[in-house]
Design a protein around this nucleic acid. Structure first.
Lengths: 189, 189
DNA sequence: AGGGCCATGTAAAGTGTTACATGATTCT
DNA sequence: AGAATCATGTAACACTTTACATGGCCCT
């Protein structure tokens, strides 16, 4: 399941929406906080809701509304709740996934359970330190040979290392302070 | 056209391959430098070659080989060469595209024309500085309001800022030194 | 004669985007 | 009456992944 599907599970668990498609769509519309990290058009939202119902992670019921057209209202099932917790407890494996999937996890973890959010940040930092070590090893295995290929490989690894370290610094800031913005920090590493 | 298609144009211009599918595929196989940044299965490679022939950026001819089965050999057309240069001259707009598309551009620019590579790095750094300024403005517009939503938005912007600055530091290192690896640098920013 | 490499694909399924269809209600 | 909003989708297209199909050459 893609991150968007898990975000839907999270929204249903948060209980900040009426649980039907149109209302869920608001959380992904311009101006909503989730729109900052993921874009989800109504077409895909309804698509994911059907898939989630197919796997049994959500259940739908028709809500009649008198004169107005009825709604499909979705709610988390027990297995859906388990799946959401599993997802929230797992850090992402790659640095590039921090921008989207990890931020989503963080968004829901913070609102559902502060302790869970703290653990998630810790685990993600540990994963990133593992990546850092692996990148350093790869760089060390490369240091000889000044040919074009080696220069390029070194650039690639240097970039990955820089991005992973930037993520680590950011994670560490959130572990401790939380709200301190990096606006005034120097650029150098 | 996706980055992979432009990588194919680049390989054909470099003239390091015989110009047929199987040989091009070697450059994306395990162990090749391009495999470090992009994965391209043979199926997609052949698909892209057909599309590129359709747009007129490459031309194909059948190369008979006596007893062995003939090959489709591809070469860049004039418009294909123009398109490649256009692509190589353009920095990527978003920080997340640096990991894949910018690295591809850099790979080919370095091998084709050192001056072009230097300009590309400069332009990419300028683009990143623009992103940095924009992120700082967004952070400044947020500083009040300590509610959940604002805290989250600040985290998102902080992460983007950190990643953009990491890219900038890396770009600057390449502008000046070139081969210096970040292995020994401290983590703090 | 059998295994591995050369060489080029097709088929099916998954994933996502864009644009549009439908029709009701509420607001002005 | 007309516009905006509520509410749910379908259709068509674009892109990618995965698995498999095909067949010949080369080496042992």
């Amino acid at each position: 399941m893609p991150p968007a599907a898990h975000a839907i599970l999270g929204l249903l668990e948060l209980d900040e929406s009426a649980g039907h498609g149109y209302d869920l769509a608001r959380h992904f519309a311009d101006g909503a906080p989730l729109a900052e990290i993921i874009r989800l058009e109504p077409a895909m939202l309804y698509h994911h809701l059907k898939r989630l119902a197919g796997t049994g992670w959500v259940a739908s019921s028709v809500q009649p509304r008198g004169s107005r057209p009825p709604r499909q209202v979705y709610e988390l099932t027990a297995t859906g709740r388990v799946e959401l917790r599993r997802w929230l407890g797992e850090p992402v494996r790659h640095t590039r996934e921090i921008r989207l999937e990890f931020l989503l996890k963080l968004y829901f973890a913070r609102r559902l359970d502060a302790a869970l959010a703290a653990r998630l940040i810790d685990d993600q930092a540990a994963t990133c330190r593992g990546l850092e070590t692996s990148l350093l090893r790869q760089l060390a295995a490369l240091t000889e040979a000044p040919d074009d290929e080696a220069v390029f490989r070194r650039s690639v690894l240097d970039l990955r290392l820089a991005q992973t370290r930037a993520a680590l610094t950011w994670l560490t800031q959130m572990e401790t302070g939380g709200a301190a913005s990096g606006s005034g920090a120097s650029r150098g590493g």
